[in-house]
């Protein structure tokens, strides 16, 4: 499956409608595609191009700029081990080695069973909890090499299924703007006056 399924297509349209210009929905739609398939497929990029009115080259141009989008099959669990300053100061490389040893792969690789992809990542904004890692962008703080082994074991055994959804899923709660409450997106070039709560000044300028 590479094109959006019906539910996701509806979600895609809902997302696009939130932006004054459809291209703004590009990154959210790439996330949605990755959530559906675990990575971003060629077909998905073509469909996204159609949905937001750009060329597929523009979609991959934007998509490939960002670290999180994967364009090839990726493990069910993507383990990102932080290697930046604060974590490095506190033994991040030990975590990486432990993970490499336990999984039998090098950073950048995916296990043969398709369960794990291992990465050395950049600063994860948890520097005071160093060294840390993320599994599918869920944190594990103050990790130790033993902790890494245990974590991999738990993941393999499915003991963390409730907490950690498969790769691609970020927030499990989506924003919904209720139809009766939402203001709606307006073409920026179609607006010329100030918003209602800003009094119009003499020249009609608004502050």
């Amino acid at each position: 499956m590479a094109r959006f399924n019906e539910t996701n297509l509806a979600t895609a349209h809902e997302i696009i409608a939130r932006y004054p210009r459809p291209k703004s929905a590009l990154i959210p739609l790439l996330h949605l595609a990755q959530e559906q398939d675990g990575y971003v497929t060629d077909e998905a990029m073509r469909q996204i191009a159609d949905l937001v009115g750009v060329t597929p080259a523009e979609v991959i141009g934007t998509g490939s700029f960002y670290e999180m989008f994967r364009f090839e099959p990726t493990g069910r669990y993507l383990i990102n081990i932080c290697g930046t300053m604060s974590c490095a100061l506190l033994g991040a490389s030990d975590l990486l080695h432990a993970a490499e040893r336990t999984l039998g792969i090098h950073a950048g690789g995916t296990t043969a069973d398709g369960m794990f992809t291992l990465h050395q990542a950049e600063c994860q904004a948890a520097c005071t909890e160093a060294p840390c890692l993320q599994v599918n962008y869920r944190y594990r703080f103050r990790m130790t090499p033993d902790g890494v082994e245990q974590l991999i074991d738990d993941l393999r055994a499915g003991r963390l299924d409730d907490e950690i959804p498969p790769h691609g899923t970020l927030a499990r709660v989506r924003q919904h703007i209720p139809a009766d409450r939402g203001v709606g997106a307006v073409d920026p070039d179609a607006v010329d006056g100030p918003p209602a709560w800003i009094p119009v000044t003499v020249e009609g300028a608004g502050s």
């Binding site: 060329t55 597929p56 080259a57 523009e58 991959i60 141009g61 490939s64 700029f65």
Partner: peptide, 17 residues
């Protein structure tokens, strides 16, 4: 827009889809 930059930083390159 059929040619585009892909990748980032030092790996940036011009490509087609």
């Amino acid at each position: 827009a059929l040619i585009h930059f892909v990748e980032r930083g030092n790996a940036t390159q011009v490509m087609t889809y």
